[in-house]
Nucleic acid binder design. Sequence first.
DNA 1: TTGTAGGCGTTATCAA
DNA 2: TTGATAACGCCTACAA
Lengths: 337, 337
Amino acid sequence: MTTIKEIAQQLNVSASTISRALNGKKGVSETLRRQVIKLSEKLGYYPDSNATALVKKRVGVLAVVIPRDSDFVFTTPFFPRILLGINRAANNAGYNILLSTGADKDFSSLYHRKLVDGLLVVGHRIDDRNVLNLEHSGIPNVVVPGFPDKKGPDLISVDGENIQSVKRAVSYLCSMGHHKIAVITGASNSKYSIERLRGFRQGMADANIEINEQYLLESDFSVADGSRMMAILLQMKDRPTAVMAINDAVAMGAIQEIERWGLKIPQDISLLAVGGSDVLDGINPPVTSIKIPTIQIGEKAVELLIAQIEGKPIQKRKIVFPTDLIVRESTGICKPE
Amino acid sequence: MTTIKEIAQQLNVSASTISRALNGKKGVSETLRRQVIKLSEKLGYYPDSNATALVKKRVGVLAVVIPRDSDFVFTTPFFPRILLGINRAANNAGYNILLSTGADKDFSSLYHRKLVDGLLVVGHRIDDRNVLNLEHSGIPNVVVPGFPDKKGPDLISVDGENIQSVKRAVSYLCSMGHHKIAVITGASNSKYSIERLRGFRQGMADANIEINEQYLLESDFSVADGSRMMAILLQMKDRPTAVMAINDAVAMGAIQEIERWGLKIPQDISLLAVGGSDVLDGINPPVTSIKIPTIQIGEKAVELLIAQIEGKPIQKRKIVFPTDLIVRESTGICKPE
DNA sequence: TTGTAGGCGTTATCAA
DNA sequence: TTGATAACGCCTACAA
């Protein structure tokens, strides 16, 4: 393995000169620098990042931490999608990505052991001790989605807008004549669940419609649970006329269940999804969705993390991206009974 | 930041003793060892992996290299799925994962710069120079899927069985009376395309059916291309009665297109997918598939990579997992015209 | 059982 | 412009 020393010997100069030449520092004659570069290429020299990190106190690696079971991570469309943004932004900035998944792992040791320069936590629950502990840890970090307003630790976070987005969607459904609106939410320790449900309640209140609490069902964000909850809704004597799904996976499951019952969307029941990944692209009819700019969220999160690592100032600690309500064919006018 | 030295000072012993105590080496009195461990926990000591790597010549990180555009990677179901297996196995073995995607990147520098102990290349094309160069590089590596028989470099690889699998599927379709069978393949520089197409040709030959070369279309493995190719097939005057899709994404696209034409599966046309991820789970009717054990492939690949890194013997350099033909409802008996 | 010394590959400081 | 030296944090002969 070629080291700086070998290059130095062959050129009859000192190692420090090689270092300077290779790192573009001043104080090396141009002719010498050229020789050094040429020889180092010829010898196939690569700097040892461990040695560099030891003295520079920086590795050039970001940890992407997804504190959930691997099965969940790699089967939920949200994660690949945000990974796309993260990966793109990290590459552009010259950082590598270390991927760490698994619930209840003490991921902060990745930082303490100097494997990474900072942590990007994605898809955490709001009662995750390891995430909460980040607050006064001194570890550069960004969390996605973060914590509901006025609650939780003061961490730098990035998310899509949830409350207004859902309010708008509810208002839209109401304008189509729907009163009996169901929501398949996710676990109650998820920021998504909390805020989207809050938006739902506000939207219904604004429209002056009473909420049937039986219509609010909690899923585990999976396709299977989407089906299960949809089945519960469908077998009610007083069925809802519209259903909002907390994410694309749940929407997918719900759609399947509706089809299984031989019902038509939107003729028999309207369906709206919060999400916007392309897993629903194949679905017929095209699904009305609140589109979360997931890729951008990932990119922004990386940007903020790197800013912290490199000691640049952070202006805004909670970034919230606006969403789009994309009306397609899965929602329609509520048929009078 | 706590170092070994500080612990040493506080205990009035030398740093080397601390090192020995913490690493469970012999030659330290048990009482001292206990003290050391207790104090190091109290101080929140973490070994610096860069320093350790510098002397031990091992980082404990595996690179997962996907030499394709990020967009492709994170929207193709195959990758999240194999990542699941990789992640699981790496964790169990105490390794971390560095994820690197992007076409035409010289990923071998990850190894040379000592960021990782070895490379796990996934989803490469067979003419990828960077992959081909791995052969005599001395870099511990495993490639998935590898190269077609008797061709390409002698690299350690893991894949699902392709040729026999497709032969069996073709034989099944023929037994249902299909003669006009189309295949939507992928790029011709993909091992999957090559071997599955080979299996198709052999299967058709075995069944003594002539192949209509117009029925063989090349896609880019995407949903969109699946639709596009399906459209081409559907507008032929002499339509195929069965279609085989190279992967789940293409199958998805094909199904959408068939629906768009108002045709029924399998009544009007049979469809079979090679793949077996759960993205097709939602589809109606359930899709007949050649199920590739993708997760296991990932796990095995990690196992082989770690074996190399740790200098253990490799018995078999080309691992091929058997597949299952899962007959569901998207394939049916060919209606006589 | 414990300590000393040297080294892993690189950078940074200070002289020359 | 260049070189010598120390230092980053840890490990490992070898000595004591």
